[in-house]
Computed example of a mutant assay.
Amino acid sequence: MSILAHQRNGQGQPLVVMHGLFGSADNWRGLARRWSDDFSVWSLDLRNHGRSFHCEGMNYTAQAEDLLYWMDSEDLDKVSLLGHSMGGKLAMEFALRYPSRVEKLIVADIAPVGYEHTHSAIIQGLRTLKAKEPWHERREADHQLAEFVDDVQTRLFLLTNLVRTETGLCLRVAIEEIARDYQAIIDAPPAMAENRVFEGATLAIKGSRSDYVQDFMLPEFKRAFPQLQLQSLDAGHWLHAEQAEGFYQQVSQFMKLD
């Protein structure tokens, strides 16, 4: 079985950070360095993302097995998990399936429910980049992606997946594997249907200008995570980037609670 790639900063209580769809551990470098003053921060590249392996399947049960295997390989018995968006769903699935391996759970702007298809244009754009690689200049790739994605900040985020190779800039995210199993990504974590419960300390941080965590979702959230604390930041879905200081403080304070 292949092992997830990771970056490590600091010493102390382990905090494992998991990115969202089309993200990577690189997106968390700034926050990881700051948290490393107090904790041992492990930032993961999930399957089909970043420097990790490419394989079929994106369902959260399989991804939870990836995480379990990685923890065992690093001799980590119990960790606190922080996940944003897709990474948050994985964190919830893992906590529900392997509660004895989780100290605290932090979920950033996602709920344990199913969502609608919203990434069709992005997937189409990344498929086009993949088909036309290698790219010689990043601005050429950006011009191509702009035909599918209007928002400049979203394109800048997506283009972090273009990495330099011997032949030019190539897409490192496994877009075909992700597209093939996209439904599994937007579905609820499978452990929710099994009525599993995680009794440990749980913090959910939502963006006040995001619609990913809405009031009608909270009963389902609290059913599976009865110790849930809900906080918010004046931000959209990428709250950890838009309100980095506030996000840093909320996570740090929660991690330090007895």
Score class of each variant (00 low, 15 high):
Cys55Arg: 08
Asn59Cys: 13
Gly83Trp: 12
Asp72Leu: 13
His54Val: 13
Ser73Arg: 03
Tyr69Ser: 12
Asp72Thr: 14
Leu82Val: 12
Met92Lys: 11
Asp72Phe: 04
His49Phe: 01
Met58Leu: 08
Asp77Ile: 07
Glu65Ile: 08
Leu68Pro: 00
Trp42Asn: 08
Cys55Gln: 15
Asp45Val: 15
His54Asn: 05
Met58Ser: 07
Asp77Ser: 08
Gln63Asp: 00
Ala95Gly: 11
Pro99Ser: 02
Arg51Met: 05
Gly50Arg: 01
Leu67Met: 00
Trp42Met: 15
Arg47Asn: 14
Tyr69Asp: 12
Met58Ile: 10
Asp72Ile: 00
Lys78Glu: 06
Ser43Glu: 15
Pro99Cys: 06
His49Trp: 12
Ala91Gly: 11
Leu46Gln: 14
Ser73Trp: 06
His54Pro: 02
Pro99Leu: 00
Glu56Gly: 06
Tyr69Gln: 06
Met92Asn: 06
Leu67Lys: 01
Gln63Tyr: 01
His49Ala: 09
Ala62Ile: 04
Glu74Ala: 14
His84Lys: 13
Met71Gln: 07
Met58Arg: 15
Leu68Ala: 05
Ala91His: 03
Asp77Cys: 05
Lys89Ile: 00
Gly83Leu: 11
Leu96Glu: 02
Ser80His: 07
Asp77Tyr: 13
Ala64Asn: 00
Glu56Met: 11
Ala64Tyr: 04
Asp75Trp: 00
Asp75Glu: 15
Asn48Arg: 12
Tyr98Asp: 05
Gly87Leu: 02
Ser43Val: 15
Ala91Ser: 08
Asp45Cys: 14
Glu93Ala: 04
Arg51Ile: 04
Leu96Ile: 03
Trp42Glu: 13
Leu82Thr: 09
Ser80Trp: 14
Leu90Thr: 00
Phe53Pro: 08
Arg51Gly: 08
Trp70Asn: 00
Asp77Phe: 06
Trp70Glu: 10
Tyr60Asn: 08
Tyr98Met: 05
Leu68Phe: 03
Met58Cys: 14
Met71Thr: 01
Arg47Pro: 12
Met71Asp: 06
Glu56Leu: 11
His49Cys: 15
Asp75Cys: 05
Met71Val: 01
His84Pro: 13
His84Ile: 15
Lys78Pro: 04
Val79Thr: 06
Lys78Leu: 02
Ser85Leu: 13
Met71Lys: 12
Ser85Glu: 04
Ser43Cys: 14
Gln63Leu: 09
Glu65Ala: 12
Ala91Phe: 07
